[in-house]
Amino acid sequence: MIFFLSFILFLIGLYCVLIKKNLLKIVMGIVIMEYSVSLFLILLGYKKGGFPPIVTPGVEGTNFVDPLPQALVITAIVISIASLALIISLCMRIYQKYKTFDITKIRKLKG
C-alpha cells in the first residue's frame, strides 16, 4: 500500500503541470512527477531488513534488496537532469523573448 504514496506524489505533480500558470512551476511539477516514479521504482526493490546490494569483505548475507531498480533509477535521474537543463534553458530564452513567465501571456501560436 506504500505504493499509493508515490501515486499521490505523481498526482501532485500532475496537478502542478495542469493548473499552474507560471512556466517554472510547471517545470517543478514535471520534476515532482519524475521523483514520484523514482520513489516507486526504489520501493519496488525494497525488502524488509534487506542489506544494500554491495559485496563487503567480512559481511555475509544473502538478504540483499533488489539492485536492478536502483540501477534503473540512476539512469532515469541522469535522463531527467539532461531534460531539466534543456527545459530550464528554454524557460530562460522564453523569458528573454516575452519578458514574462505567465503562460496565459505567451500565446504567439494559435493553437
Partner: peptide, 29 residues
Amino acid sequence: AEELEASFKYMVMGSIATILILFSIGLLY
C-alpha cells in the same frame, strides 16, 4: 519566440509521456 513556445509545449507533453511509460515499465517489473 514561436519555436521556443512550441518546444516548451512539446517538452511538457513529452515529459509527461515518458513519466507514464517509466511508471508502466516499473509496474511490469
